[in-house]
Simulated assay, not measured.
Amino acid sequence: MDKLNNIRVFCRIVELGTFVAVAREINVSAMMVSKYIAQLEESLGVALLNRTTRRISLTEAGESYYARSKPLLEELAELDEDISELGKNVKGILKVTAPIDFGGIYVVPAIEAYQNQHPNVKIMMSLQNSHINLSEGIYDVSIVVSNSVDLGVVARKIAETKLCTYASPAYIAKYGEPRDIDELNQHLCLHYIDTPHEDFWVFNVAGEEKKLRTTWHFASNNGRALCQAASLGMGITQAPELSVANYLEQGRLVEILQDFRIPALSIYATYMQRRFIPAKITTFVNFMSHFFDKQNFESIHKF
């Protein structure tokens, strides 16, 4: 009996939810997967899984066994990868997540430059604005625009950006320019969905951060769409300055409510703190830091 293999199969059943899915992943029959679990349970003398015709669930012993075995498997995999990388080129699949706009505009050129140096690293990037919990193990590196990070996460600052409020000259000519944040309730607002600030816009009032829930007129999870909408006079938007640089240069948007702008937001490359850090992670994060230290955002990409 290969107990280590059986433990790996057990963990994948917990994560994928069915024997069939695991069997397909490791290219064996579902009956063989069942055999692996039976061997593991027999060796331990306890049932790890409750099996019914409709679903699979963990027993109390199964919950404890998964919680303690999963980190051990991860450390073993990382140890194998670290040792195999000694004296060799950095390689592997790196899973990265980034905000939709920053990732699409600025991270792609950085990845292109990184892979020129490390061609044996394959990068899978997911773009989303929602909060990512790295402890779930889905991603290796998460790029975040924030001034705070989760506990247990290593954060390397790679850049920073201002969070400002914008409107088009045409909108201001038609509706007037708000001089105070309380006046925003009388204006058409364009809302960014799924940001760390959720349904609120954030301002600095007398040195303190104030969150304001605006009544939105148009909403999207894509900053380019919101910038275009604002430039067309559809309303006022709040966005990182790096997302609107080209619109500002062309005079299609202007900053408003400057006196209420919060301090600059930091942009971090983050990864989980652990005993063994694969070289694909450390080299990527180090590269990102140097890349953005030398580059001007506006020169990397234009809308």
Rank of each mutant, 00 (worst) to 15 (best):
F260P: 03
V254N: 08
R261N: 09
N246R: 12
A264H: 08
A230G: 01
L248E: 04
F260I: 01
I256Y: 07
A269F: 13
G251T: 12
E241L: 12
P263F: 06
S243P: 00
A269Y: 09
T237H: 00
I262V: 14
L265H: 09
E249W: 12
S266Y: 05
V254L: 11
A264E: 12
P240A: 10
S266A: 11
A239D: 13
T237K: 00
N246P: 00
I256A: 04
Y271I: 13
Y247E: 06
L248K: 06
R261C: 05
Y268H: 08
R252S: 15
R261K: 11
Y271G: 03
P240R: 07
L248H: 07
Q273S: 14
V244F: 01
I256P: 04
T270M: 06
L232R: 02
I267K: 07
A245W: 03
Y271K: 08
G233R: 02
P240T: 10
S243A: 10
Y247N: 04
M272Y: 09
L232T: 04
G235C: 10
M272T: 15
L248A: 01
R261E: 10
R261A: 04
R252A: 12
P263W: 04
Y268M: 05
A245R: 09
V254A: 04
Y271C: 11
S243M: 13
I267S: 05
L253R: 07
T237C: 13
P263I: 06
L232E: 07
A239F: 10
I256H: 04
R252D: 13
R261L: 03
A239S: 14
M272I: 15
A239L: 15
P263E: 08
S243Y: 12
G233A: 03
Y271M: 07
A245N: 01
M234P: 04
Y271D: 05
A230Q: 00
E255C: 13
E249Q: 15
R274H: 11
D259Y: 08
I262F: 06
P263L: 03
I262H: 09
M272W: 13
L242P: 01
Q273H: 12
V254D: 06
S231Y: 00
T270R: 02
S266E: 05
E249K: 15
G251N: 10
R252E: 15
